[in-house]
Write a protein that binds this DNA or RNA. Structure first.
Lengths: 135, 135
DNA sequence: CTTGCCTCCGTATATAGGTACGGTGCTTAT
DNA sequence: ATAAGCACCGTACCTATATACGGAGGCAAG
């Protein structure tokens, strides 16, 4: 069962990161430090777990923490024009990256296929096919 | 016009990186250091430019230099079984990343669209939609 | 034949993104 | 009421990926 609020240690565990990492993200502004009840312990929610996971996903696809901060800013809601501008910039990046990845995917699939037929040496033209993309 | 061979400085310029970076990649085994003619200067080719660009592309989609080294190993040709294994592993990663990026793409497109309709504040489903993907 | 610019090489420093450490003070189970 | 186990906080340290620095030597233009 899912509690609605828990400690930093539990948050870290749920999100699959180190406690120190949570604190690091707070310092970087990627996570809000919940108010500390006087004499108490800060409480976290599922929402925080999701944010951390989002950060990790973003990193895996090549975004820096600063970029992810921008993306999270969109989530938090801000004036439309600014949000839209950022979103459009990120969209362009994302699309370029998808294209790069697809090119790699094709090259690797071909390699695997070739391999299935022939069991000698193989080589994969992964480089040539990737040039010229813009992401 | 494209010369067939040039110096490290030219290579760096063509590839859009620093000379020091080229040397760093050589130390890391990502680029082969061309033989130095006695008393001479090492010569580089378009192929090197492509390799460097590939490295940069790879980084943009979230691969580390070590992972890129593996991918370049495929390009260079090696025994099938090993190559296939590596290729399959990378394919899985790549597919996961494409999926993550697509999710982000959808979320951001929606955001942009919402923006076009509403000129107040927006709240973006970006985080929620991204949770649980596996890349 | 000197002045610059470049290669070459080794070493030192920088930046991003964590990760570890050490002390203090709650709470809780024993 | 004491010992364990966390939270909290500041600071120090670590890894990956560059980037900079500084001296020696080659080559070409003025």
């Amino acid at each position: 069962m899912t509690q609605k609020s828990f400690t930093i240690g539990a948050l870290a565990k749920k999100a699959g990161v180190n406690v120190e990492t949570i604190r690091f993200y707070q310092r970087r502004g990627l996570l809000v430090e919940p108010v500390k009840p006087p004499k108490g312990i800060r409480q976290y929610s599922e929402r925080d777990v999701q944010r951390v996971r989002f950060i990790k996903q973003g990193q895996k696809v090549g975004f820096s923490l600063d970029e992810i901060l921008e993306l999270l800013g969109l989530e938090d809601g801000q004036h439309c024009r600014e949000a839209q501008e950022i979103a459009l910039r990120k969209l362009a990046l994302i699309r370029g990256r998808i294209e790069s990845l697809r090119t790699m995917e094709t090259a690797l699939s071909n390699l695997v296929e070739t391999c299935a037929n022939d069991s000698g040496r193989v080589s994969c033209p992964i480089i040539i096919t990737l040039m010229g993309t813009s992401a």
